[in-house]
């Protein structure tokens, strides 16, 4: 009788410990969904950061579609399971794409709405460092980073803590890398 009581107590204690551990782990990792290939690599702001993400995706052999100006309609036609959007505004890039900042905001808004509708998770990256932070980039960061399920940022681009703040406020997991190339193994680890 005594033995079974001890056994029951031990099982109960282990269950409680397990639950505590499970809750702790869930908090630490946030509530990020699983990210799967193939991925769509697109831009938010038309800086060359999206091309950098393409080169990094190639390095870790991810299956991807590269479309810096992807629209909601195009996303619907694509067979992709994750959207990786690289944020960074470039006046030259927007001009080359025939867009202004309002066009770009509207395109990305529609794209994210469609991704949510299709239950395709969004990863936002900022991998061009401090040089790709300015009023226009900040506008895009503040608007679209809260929509993401995961943030990857090059440390010098987060010197003022904006990405950390958005991560904390919106409970989005964040990974910071010293160099842009450091984003490649994170993508590899994150995306099945």
């Amino acid at each position: 009788m005594k033995k079974s009581k001890i056994l029951n107590s031990a099982v109960l204690a282990l269950t409680i410990l397990g639950l505590v551990f499970a809750i702790g782990t869930a908090d630490e990792e946030g509530e990020s969904p699983s990210f799967e290939q193939p991925i769509l690599i697109t831009s938010i702001g038309q800086s060359p950061g999206a091309m950098m993400a393409k080169v990094l995706a190639k390095r870790v052999e991810l299956e991807f579609v590269f479309e810096p100006t992807a629209t909601a309609e195009q996303l619907e036609e694509m067979d992709v399971n994750t959207v990786v959007a690289v944020v960074g505004a470039s006046g030259k890039g927007l001009g080359a794409a025939g867009l202004d900042i309002d066009d770009e905001i509207s395109r990305v808004n529609e794209l994210i709405c469609k991704a949510n509708e299709l239950e395709i998770p969004l990863i936002v990256m900022h991998i061009e460092g401090a040089q790709r932070r300015g009023d226009m980039s900040n506008q895009l960061i503040n608007k679209f980073v809260p929509e993401s399920y995961y943030i990857i940022v090059q440390k010098s681009g987060n010197d003022d803590g904006l990405f950390t703040q958005l991560s904390d406020e919106n409970d989005i997991p964040i990974k910071q890398v010293e160099k842009a190339a450091g984003a490649a193994p994170i993508l590899d680890e994150l995306i099945d």
Binding site: Q46, P48, G49, M51, M52, K92, G95, Q131
Partner: peptide
């Protein structure tokens, strides 16, 4: 630290 810039088409 060399950043990338696109050649503006216009």
């Amino acid at each position: 630290d060399m950043k990338l810039e696109s050649s503006p088409a216009n």
